[in-house]
Simulated assay, not measured.
Amino acid sequence: MEVRENFQIDSIRIKEIDIPYAVPFQISGGISYTRKSLIIEIHSGDTVAYGESAPFESPFYSSETISTAKAILIEDLIPKVLGKEIKSIDEINFILNDNIRGNNFAKAGIETAYWDLVAKKNNMSIKDLILYKLKELGTTEEYLENNDYIYSGVSVGIPEDNSYETLKDMVKGYVDEGYKRVKIKIKPGWDLKALEVTRGVIGDDFILWPDANAAYDFEKDLDLFKEMDKFGCNFIEQPLNCNDIIDHTKLAKNIKTPICLDESLKSSKLAKQIVEIDGPKIWNIKIQRVGGLLEALKIYAIASQNNIEVWGGTMPESGVGGASILALSTFKGFKYPACIEPSERWYGKGKDIKEMVMDKEGKIYYKEEIGIGEINQENYHKYGAIIYDSKSC
């Protein structure tokens, strides 16, 4: 199969969307009531492609925010690619990373839009383009196998009223809806009891893990993590500092429960270093966090060559950004139910820019479409406002 990757970027537009959450979402660092995000449109000839940049409004998950992403996109990233003929997906990644450190969420917006453009220009799905690039990266045959669906796992935030009864009701409701895994957000003071309550609802054999979002300290909290072993969790997600891989590796050797890296896994370079130090062997792959889809594929390829188990994570994005991680998460190396959840869970029925639907078995099916597929233009207009248009600048 021959795929053309070189296309002219004629113009770029940014729309800021703001969709209210059906239920406020709280993690260890903060709480969100709406999902603000930046949708990046790349126009090339008569083709319009879409990507997403989805940091939070405050810097409690990453150093980036909606405000910083806007500034970097408009002042630095867009001028580097606007009006240019890009030779390949690899080249646009090189251009976006040249002399611009970090700012991965901002980069992901343009980068994923270019993937959508390439797929649409070649009249192919984003999943077929992913498979094509995974083969180029030397991904093992086992990890190239894929399904037409993923199992969805629910991410349960800390209840706004900090009530264990509320947590119990939330978990029971989600399991009854068909989710195949429960992840609960934890923080100091909301951890052991929260796990105990959750296990009491779902039983001993249901897939469960806590996500700390980097809220704990290795030396101070080691005994607490040892106590978590009794809950039989599949792993503990990102318990320590967002920039750490050494203490996570030490923690993994001091407790029975495996450790999963999320915030610390920012690039394929770091993925290689984690392998070299015999670090944690479960990785969360988020396209936003690593700066785009190609970097996510590079991490997946490294995982395939080193028997690392991975699973798909979201911020969550809207369905625009979610389309790419859904496509990637159908590949066999993704061993755990993803954080890709139906749109109705986050926003209520029919409000997403691109709807994702889960059946009663907890499956979200990947629909073969050209590029990322059609988006809901009515919702896009209702919840979105143009904040930048290169044609008017």
Rank of each mutant, 00 (worst) to 15 (best):
E2R: 14
R4Y: 11
R4P: 00
I12E: 03
I12D: 02
R13S: 14
I17P: 03
Y21C: 00
A22C: 03
P24H: 01
P24C: 03
S28G: 07
G29E: 03
G30T: 12
I31Y: 07
S32K: 09
Y33R: 13
S37H: 07
E41L: 15
D46C: 09
S53M: 02
S53R: 02
A54E: 00
S62T: 15
I66K: 00
T68I: 15
A69L: 05
L77S: 06
V81Q: 09
G83D: 05
I86A: 10
I86D: 07
K87A: 13
D90I: 06
I92Y: 05
I92P: 04
L96F: 10
N97L: 13
R101K: 14
N103Y: 13
N104R: 11
K107R: 10
K107V: 15
E111P: 05
W115D: 02
N122R: 13
N122D: 12
N123R: 15
N123G: 12
D128A: 14
D128W: 12
D128N: 14
K133T: 05
T139H: 11
T140M: 04
T140A: 03
Y143I: 00
E145Y: 10
Y149R: 04
Y149Q: 13
I150L: 06
I150H: 01
I150A: 06
G153S: 05
V156M: 09
P159K: 13
S163W: 01
T166R: 07
K168V: 09
D169Y: 09
D169G: 05
V171K: 08
G173F: 00
G173P: 07
G178T: 06
K180R: 15
R181D: 03
I184R: 08
K187L: 07
D191W: 10
K193P: 04
A194M: 06
T198S: 15
G200R: 04
G200A: 02
G203S: 11
D211K: 01
A212H: 05
A212P: 02
A214Y: 00
D217C: 12
D217L: 10
E219M: 08
L224K: 10
F225I: 01
K226E: 04
E227I: 09
F231Y: 15
F231E: 08
F235M: 12
E237Y: 00
P239Y: 10
L240Y: 12
N243T: 12
D244W: 02
I246T: 08
N254Y: 11
N254G: 01
K256C: 02
L265S: 04
S267P: 10
S267W: 09
K269Y: 12
K269D: 09
I274R: 07
E276Q: 13
W283A: 09
W283R: 01
I285E: 02
K286W: 02
K286I: 04
Q288W: 04
R289K: 15
L294R: 08
Y300G: 08
A301M: 06
N307R: 14
N307F: 12
E309Y: 11
G313S: 06
P316R: 01
P316F: 01
V320L: 00
A323I: 04
S324Q: 14
K335N: 04
S343W: 08
W346V: 01
K349E: 12
V357R: 01
M358Y: 10
D359K: 07
K363E: 09
I364F: 08
I372W: 06
G373V: 03
E374L: 12
N376L: 03
E378H: 07
Y380D: 08
Y380F: 15
Y380A: 00
K382N: 14
Y383M: 00
A385H: 11
I386C: 15
I387D: 00
Y388Q: 07
D389P: 05
